[in-house]
Design a protein around this nucleic acid. Sequence first.
DNA 1: ATATCCGGCTTGTCCGACAAACTATGGGTG
DNA 2: CACCCATAGTTTGTCGGACAAGCCGGATAT
Lengths: 257, 257
Amino acid sequence: MLAAAEDRFERVEVASACHLVAEAIEREILSGRLRPGDGVGTEAALCRQFGVNRSTVREAIRMLEQGGLVQRGGDRRLYASLPRYSGLSSRVSRALILHEVTFRELWATARVLEIAAAEQAAENADAAAIDALEENQARAEQALDDPARLAELDSQFHSLMSKASRNRVLDLAREPAGLLFFPTTEMICRRVPKGAARMVAAHRHLIEALKARDAAAAALWMARHVADWRKGFERAGRDLDEPVERVFARHALRAPY
Amino acid sequence: MLAAAEDRFERVEVASACHLVAEAIEREILSGRLRPGDGVGTEAALCRQFGVNRSTVREAIRMLEQGGLVQRGGDRRLYASLPRYSGLSSRVSRALILHEVTFRELWATARVLEIAAAEQAAENADAAAIDALEENQARAEQALDDPARLAELDSQFHSLMSKASRNRVLDLAREPAGLLFFPTTEMICRRVPKGAARMVAAHRHLIEALKARDAAAAALWMARHVADWRKGFERAGRDLDEPVERVFARHALRAPY
DNA sequence: ATATCCGGCTTGTCCGACAAACTATGGGTG
DNA sequence: CACCCATAGTTTGTCGGACAAGCCGGATAT
């Protein structure tokens, strides 16, 4: 009865062996002593070094693997590695689904991130990035009556735009929302007749803005593009306050590193 | 010689038993058949159900645990759970550090996210959220000459602001950048005399804007606040194109779920 | 009725083992 | 001398069993 009343002490941190091993290796990587691409050593070697059993080492490895800090190479050996963005993004998307966020939250966030990506892309895009966008655009123009393909190309367009900004922080912040946001494009294109044409037109204007290095124009067209999405979503009879459905989980399930 | 030339086939996805087990449990949670808080069962029970060894089950559990999908309760039993934002954010921050992103990228991204958070907070903040910000502000006013404390309070202020927006997607997108961005406040307060006062003043204006439900004012003051940070950063003699240092890893290392 | 003890269950770790895949090494062959 | 193949060794993925420590519930003693 009285013990619970006071909380003078923090909970004691009892670390299990496998966590200690994982943290030791993690520190080695974060500190730069193990660089991405370096071999971490065999399980047997790690057992010897840490003085623990192979099962324990393997549990530690599974944890690090999941965090993207180590990876099995083609030869199944263990290498330190850079966490891949795609893995992180799908993980975040998964969390958003489980938390049942609404399309309104998603839209409000995607809006500012996409606009920022367009602005910064206009400032920083190089020729290769613009070429990639042009190629995407050419394909989209061939697929005006194929909603599924169009949705995929739209998603890719925004991803390319984000990469074109050459801002990796922005790119990583944008991707989880994009992963959940753009799959709905397919539904909208199916339900709203003029949706596809408006989409492709907006993309065209965005590419032109990038070529002209006109950040204001890029922001403007992206704002319109995203506003269009919202209108289409509502015209399709959907409610912005619906939670993002579990259906989209399949998009987030892919690529667990 | 000839096998490598053609890549007609995708690489065959050879899934190890522990991955299959992890995926099966993950599906169960994502589909909603296992709800957060539900017990997953004992390791022995999972062994029986999947027909695999306990070591294999444990490796699967380690993976899920790391993803935040399951958690050990106080009784050490296994429960399905919602991935915590803090765990995801620190993971993303860690990735940003390893990718050696620059402060310029960080700043450009934090800028749009913080402004959006302020705007949406002005629209959606409830009384409790504003109270929390007021309390933070009161503490900051008491700590004007304690840079470390002030930096912590600043970081907390922005986190509270983001929560006040009641947009969980935005909150989650913002946090990783914030985690890396705000620790530099301490350095700036030390090096730039008037920094602390300007910071507290900006926070005051932001709180007033929230009370007045004035999104434009909130955006404006946040823009100034973030611009101030950048000026302070440069006055402190730092270069925006420096990569975020590994030093900040300690902030990202915490709370691995 | 309360306090205490005991036995069972569960987890964390350890040990030893084995099949499959891969590597390397050495020998045979043209 | 160069090249190909077989064999042995290494490494991983999985298995079965084992045990100490912690937690829980029930039985027992006061």
